[in-house]
């Protein structure tokens, strides 16, 4: 095992339950795992099992009932590490242009400087959105909108990226392309990322490691490292590799074994 110093994120027996007048629904039970810097982890599991809840807890939007989270060795509340969170839908605001949507986070965190503005322009240029800077979100295709949402997250220079089924709202072709796109962007920027998805092939094509959750209440059923013997390790190349099918069958059996 790696030493603690290298671990950017550490979860120790996280418990969470939802409460309402009818009673409580346990969502997460004893979730523990750790991540190295630059690692890409996919979390898969049946829908409604608490995958998104887990991301909300890591990002600090929800407080776990038990357990602790450490980021770069510090407790989540004291940590100054930037966490970027990409939601299922792009949530671009129609009353703002693409550029102004992208700088929303900078605006909120009072980080609008000449430098960060230049960075926003540069990122938009890099990801092929330069000529749409002044367009409204509705003028963009689904894939472009998702890329704009990614730029909005990246411009804050997060050390950890949380992706909550960010491609599920796209049609199949766009999904493959944007998945490939965004996967490479994250690899290139050397970001630590957690992807939550119910699409197994998406998880296998993007991640270094897959964590399989059980149905609600979720516990970790298995952790599976993915090793591909490829010259150029891109999501699309992975889909054509012989290992892909094996991993798919393995995970499929794991998930459906307990039904």
């Amino acid at each position: 095992m790696e030493s603690n110093a290298e671990q950017i994120l550490e979860l120790k027996s996280i418990y969470y339950a939802y409460h309402n007048m009818e009673g409580e629904t346990r969502a997460l039970i004893d979730i523990s795992f750790a991540m190295k810097e630059g690692e890409f982890v996919a979390i898969v599991g049946p829908s409604g099992c608490g995958k998104s809840t887990l991301l909300s807890i890591i990002s600090g939007l929800l407080q776990p009932e038990k357990g602790l989270i450490k980021i770069n060795g510090k407790y989540l509340r004291e940590s100054t590490t930037n966490i970027g969170y990409m939601l299922q839908h792009d949530q671009l605001f129609e009353w703002r242009t693409i550029y102004h949507n992208v700088i929303l986070g900078l605006e909120i965190q009072h980080m609008l400087t000449t430098k960060t503005k230049a960075k926003a322009h540069e990122l938009l240029d890099t990801y092929g959105l330069k000529q749409f800077e002044n367009a409204r979100p509705s003028e963009l295709s689904g894939g472009m909108r998702q890329r704009a949402a990614l730029v909005r997250t990246l411009v804050l220079e997060p050390d950890i990226l949380l992706l909550d089924e960010p491609f599920s709202a796209l049609d199949y072709q766009t999904r493959l392309r944007v998945g490939d796109d965004i996967g490479q962007i994250i690899k290139k920027e050397h970001k630590t990322a957690i992807l939550v998805t119910h699409d197994l092939s998406e998880a296998i094509s993007l991640a270094d490691r897959v964590i399989i959750l059980t149905p609600r209440p979720a516990t970790i059923q298995q952790t599976l490292p993915l090793i591909f013997d490829l010259e150029k390790d891109t999501p699309l190349n992975r889909r054509n590799a012989p290992e892909f099918k094996n991993y798919f069958n393995l995970i499929w059996k794991e998930i459906n074994g307990n039904e």
């Binding site: 939007l61 929303l104 986070g105 909120i108």
Partner: peptide, 22 residues
């Protein structure tokens, strides 16, 4: 849309930001 307000919180915004920005 509560998801739009959630976006503000994921960008480290406060409830005041949710009011003025969304």
């Amino acid at each position: 849309d509560p998801e739009k307000i959630k976006l503000i919180y994921t960008l480290q915004g406060t409830r005041l930001h949710a009011m003025t920005k969304v």
